[in-house]
């Protein structure tokens, strides 16, 4: 298969405003659950705390697909992993198996729920609502050739065992630019 969608996150631009989280919740009317979440972490390479917006990464080998006893997950030709929660029995397997903890239980429906990359918006030619609402353009989506995906995997290993197996569809810019301070009068 040729081009597949991936999320693209620029660490340098993310200011942890959480607009993406809120926009998603508002668009889908979610309460008590976040499909997208801004996380904070510090690494040996980066001195500063890094903000990182994360949701389902629409992995190339999604573990949720194989773990769901109802076979509710499927991966579209454009790479988006979609959950059909109609038959969900809330067994929580996907919730615990996903290395990124993407599927969560929606308290309203009491069924598994996860980011679907706003698939209905993409089909109409729009970007996902989280991407549209990102004020600093830190979050974006792009299409990459699935054959070249390996080289575009996250530069920063998350040290989560399954991560290298699932091959998440996310491209990140990790090098934090050194801050330049301009002194101004007044």
């Amino acid at each position: 298969m040729a081009d597949q969608y991936v999320f693209c996150v620029d660490f340098n631009k993310c200011i942890a405003c959480k607009t993406c989280e809120m926009a998603c919740n508002e668009y889908y009317g979610l309460e008590g659950i976040h499909r997208r979440k801004v996380v904070f972490f510090q690494t040996e390479i980066l001195d500063n705390v890094v903000h990182f917006t994360i949701s389902c990464n629409h992995c190339q080998n999604p573990v949720c697909v194989s773990i769901c006893p109802q076979n509710n997950f499927h991966k579209r030709r454009d790479g988006i992993v979609v959950l059909q929660s109609n038959n969900c029995r809330t067994c929580l397997r996907c919730v615990t198996a996903c290395p990124f903890r993407a599927p969560k239980i929606n308290p309203k429906t009491n069924r598994a729920d996860k980011c679907n990359m706003c698939v209905e918006r993409i089909e109409r030619g729009f970007k996902p609502v989280c991407v549209e609402s990102c004020v600093t353009h830190a979050l974006n989506i792009m299409k990459v050739d699935s054959a070249k995906r390996k080289s575009m995997a996250m530069e920063h290993k998350t040290r989560i065992p399954l991560e290298s197996y699932t091959n998440p569809s996310i491209v990140s810019t990790t090098k934090k630019k050194k801050r330049t301070i301009f002194l101004r009068e007044g």
Binding site: N61, P62, V63, V65, S66, C68, N71, H74
Partner: peptide
Amino acid sequence: SIHLNKSYQEARLALKF
């Protein structure tokens, strides 16, 4: 055969691990 998708992911897991 509708579950071949699961079998595929498992075969990949078996291969990897």
